[in-house]
Write a protein that binds this DNA or RNA. Structure first.
Length: 105
DNA sequence: TCCTTGACGAGAT
DNA sequence: CATCTCGCCAAGG
C-alpha cells in the first residue's frame, strides 16, 4: 500500500464545504493545517484519482474567480454548478466572497 | 540531487 | 483595473 501523496489530505476538507458556499484554495490549505499550500490544492483537484463525492466546483481562487485549467473547458461547468446552488456571480464573473465564502467553525 | 512546473496569493506600480 | 514581481512548496522528470 503506497503512501498517499500529501496533497490527498485536502480532499477531506473540500468534502466539508456545504452547498451554496465556496472556499479559496488558500483557505482550504489553511483549514487542512497546511498553510501556504494553495497551489497543491489545485494539484489535488487536477488528479482527483477516482475520488468520489468531491465537490471540486466549490473551490475558487482568492479573487472569487474560477481558475483556468490550461486545457479542458470545464470552467463553464463549474459556474453552472455553483449558480445551481445559489452562488451568484457579478457581471465580471466574480463571486462576492463576503457572502459566499465559507469558513469551518 | 537539481530544475521546472503549477486549478495560488498578496503586494507594489 | 491591468501588470508585474516575488514568495511558497510538493511532484515529477
Amino acid at each position: 500500500m503506497p503512501i498517499q501523496p500529501l496533497h490527498t489530505c485536502f480532499i477531506a476538507t473540500i468534502r466539508r464545504i456545504p452547498p451554496g458556499k465556496v472556499m479559496s484554495y488558500g483557505a482550504v490549505a489553511k483549514s487542512a493545517g497546511l498553510p501556504r499550500h494553495a497551489r497543491h490544492v489545485g494539484v489535488a483537484l487536477k488528479n482527483l484519482d477516482g475520488e468520489a463525492d468531491v465537490p471540486w466546483w466549490r473551490v475558487v481562487n482568492g479573487e472569487g474567480r474560477i481558475s483556468a485549467r490550461g486545457l479542458d473547458g470545464n470552467n463553464d461547468l463549474q459556474r453552472v454548478l455553483l449558480e445551481a446552488e445559489g452562488v451568484q456571480f457579478d457581471e465580471t464573473g466574480r463571486i462576492d466572497m463576503r457572502c459566499f465564502s465559507w469558513n469551518p467553525s
